[in-house]
Nucleic acid binder design. Structure first.
Lengths: 205, 205
DNA sequence: GCTTGTGAAAGTCTTCACAGCG
DNA sequence: CGCTGTGAAGACTTTCACAAGC
């Protein structure tokens, strides 16, 4: 099997999410042009993407929703689920803890500086002081860290996570954090996303 | 001035955000390789990106932080600030209302289905029932809508916003929403972002 | 007819090499 | 010298055209 290009990986993840909805709604078959509309790309692109993973679930016409989902899950190695922790349990971090059922990963720990916060939060996720981060990350084989702390602490927390051994960082702070080679980082910055939209629609208005 | 490629726009937005931090920290000059490290790209790429906007703020060596920021702001037409509304005032939506000071846009309205919620929330942003969405969006010239409702309502709310005339959608729901041509949409889906990271680090572990 | 699958063409983006400037 | 600016080469992505299946 050929190496899957990065942009194709991104889209396959989105397709996988979309298929979950279809499955819930009892849709059994889906077409490349429907998926294209959902993702905002052409049907060519979808079909090309799917050609990287070997899909033999094209039953007659269209794709079998469940079969395609299985194929993507396997190609992207989404199972067994990897382990994730959330650092920073403010409003955002706390909200993320409850996201579990939507995720293709297990949130197995939450960290915060404030012991107070840890005791007050009601959640099924185990919570710890950030001082125990390295220990817990290693013990539980956590591979991905979600950074949900204020911006001035983001780099520090990222360094802690990397030092503890995670290989992926999802950063919600409005700061670009630096990670070493071999660690994959993704930013989810509300301010930046809004800027992008504003800039995009600015050309022609 | 040449047309700015989409990926360059994205990076310029990120650079702009990074420069804000530098400015706050009193840093006066910045190099292309520093910016590259922050964004996870090469210094070539940064310089090429900057070549699209006419930067005459290369004082000797490095870029003048303030000058570069001004240049990007102008090129991306970030001023005057565009107007934004948030639909859905659950935990996430409510959190976004308070993000104001980080943004290069003005949040001028929030909408929710529950009148109860609207009355209880403490915020300086004007809040309305979602039934008044179209009216308020038009009156206040709102150009961007942030969708922070549960996934089953996301498409409906998006359609409302588009019908009311917004030209940009930032969607936080774990669903891909469809928008017509001429409207720019960006998804910020936690589940999907995590999937991407998991998939990326899966190759080689 | 409608669909998918895929090599080849077209287009876009990144990297490189090197000129030019303080 | 170390930095920026940029045309040209190379890599990657998308689009197209069309063969093949239902």
């Amino acid at each position: 099997m050929k190496k899957i290009p990065p942009l194709t990986i991104e889209r396959l993840c989105a397709v996988y999410g979309a298929l979950r909805c279809h499955q819930q709604n009892g849709v059994g078959v889906v077409y490349s042009n429907e998926l294209g509309k959902l993702l905002g790309v052409t049907d060519y692109t979808i079909r090309k993407d799917l050609s990287y993973i070997h899909t033999d679930c094209t039953s007659g016409r269209g794709y079998d929703v469940e079969g395609l989902r299985d194929n993507i899950r396997q190609a992207l190695k989404l199972r067994p689920k990897k382990k994730v922790c959330v650092v920073g349990l403010g409003r955002l971090g706390a909200a993320l803890l409850d996201y579990g059922r939507f995720l293709d990963a297990d949130i197995v720990a939450g960290f915060d500086q404030s012991l107070n916060r840890i005791e007050l939060l009601e959640t099924s996720v185990d919570l710890f002081s950030v001082y125990r981060l390295k220990e817990v990350v290693r013990e539980r084989n956590i591979e991905v860290g979600v950074v949900a702390v204020p911006d001035h602490a983001a780099q520090e927390v990222t360094d802690l996570l990397v030092d503890a051994g995670v290989r992926g960082i999802l950063n919600f702070a409005p700061t670009n954090v630096i990670v070493p080679d071999g660690v994959f980082r993704k930013n989810m910055d509300f301010a930046n996303a809004l800027r992008e939209i504003v800039a995009r629609i600015g050309f022609g208005g």
